[in-house]
Computed example of a mutant assay.
Amino acid sequence: MNNNLQREKEDQRDRDFQRRANNDTHRINHNSQNNICSFYQNIGACRHGEMCVLDHCIPTFSRTILIPQMYQNPKLKLKERISYTIEKELQNQLDTFYKDLFYELMKYGEIEELMVSDNLTPHLLGHVYVKYVSDIGANRAFKALENKLFNQTTLKPEFSPVVNFDGTRCRANGTSRGCARGDFCNFLHIRDPSPTLLINLFKDQKEYYEDIERQKELSEKKTRYSDEKLSDEENYKSKNDNNGENDSYSDSQEDNVKK
């Protein structure tokens, strides 16, 4: 009975979210209120997929990239109830995946957020969201990852309209009462990496880009030094050439005087 009541509350929250999102869309463009799928607009995915009667406005560029079904959630293979031991193993596997992925993605641009969906519902299964500091980083990652083979899966990244994930997370997930829909919730259940790992990754990223800046400055100094040296050599050569011409002129004048 309590589960049914909780599920009804979750359904009502879905409806409230859809209504609020539609109102937000209306404030941006009142003519398109009834045409835009607010779930796709605010979560980056919709359970109806291509069959949705509302528009999925896929942006041509964004700071956020969605990589569908990249994370192969080990919970799909579990038949027994998730115990503390299994939960710890799931976290370890996520940490390993997250670490490798972070180091790969940060090569294309500075990462602001990286999130992995823990949902088992088909339209959110294995989704990875990466939000870059700039559009340039996101565009580089998009081009590099498109059609790339990863764990025998061809990656199909897409630019996502989501830039603020505060409203995409399931607020009940992780609380004492838990989410009534469990892993099949239509809101994101983000499995976060271990706090220490997350701190170290962003620290490494900062050092990585600081080192790039230092190398860039060093390269620019070397270029300026080379240009200045070349300019000095050209000036020196030009000066010597002029002195040679002056010497020849002096010799000619002296010869004329003797004559």
Rank of each mutant, 00 (worst) to 15 (best):
D11V: 04
R19E: 12
R19C: 09
A21K: 15
A21G: 15
N22C: 11
N22T: 13
H26Y: 14
I28S: 11
H30G: 11
S32P: 01
S32A: 14
I36K: 01
C37T: 02
F39Y: 11
I43E: 07
C46T: 00
H48K: 12
C52I: 01
C52D: 02
C52G: 01
L54Q: 09
D55L: 15
H56Q: 08
C57A: 14
F61C: 15
S62T: 02
R63V: 13
L66G: 02
L66K: 07
M70G: 06
M70V: 01
M70H: 07
M70T: 06
Q72C: 11
Q72K: 14
K75Y: 00
E80C: 05
R81A: 12
R81I: 14
R81G: 04
Y84W: 09
E89M: 04
Q91I: 07
N92L: 10
Q93S: 10
Q93C: 09
Y98E: 02
L101V: 01
E104L: 12
E104V: 06
K107P: 05
Y108F: 14
G109I: 07
D118E: 13
L120T: 05
H123R: 06
H123Y: 09
L124R: 11
G126N: 03
G126M: 02
H127M: 00
H127R: 02
V128A: 04
Y132D: 03
Y132E: 02
V133T: 15
D135F: 15
I136S: 11
A141L: 04
F142T: 00
K143G: 00
F150W: 11
L155W: 02
E158T: 13
F159A: 02
V163Q: 14
V163H: 13
F165K: 02
A172M: 13
N173K: 10
N173S: 15
R177T: 15
G182Y: 01
D183L: 12
C185G: 00
N186M: 10
H189G: 00
R191G: 11
P193Y: 01
S194F: 07
L197T: 02
L198K: 15
I199H: 12
L201A: 06
K206S: 12
K206A: 09
E207F: 07
Y208W: 09
Y208M: 08
Y209M: 01
Y209S: 03
Q215H: 09
Q215M: 10
L218Y: 14
S219M: 08
K221E: 09
E228D: 13
E228F: 07
E228M: 09
L230I: 13
D232M: 12
E234W: 08
N240P: 08
N242K: 08
E245D: 12
N246S: 09
N246M: 06
N246F: 05
S252R: 06
N256F: 02
V257L: 11
V257W: 10
K258L: 01
K259C: 05
K259F: 05
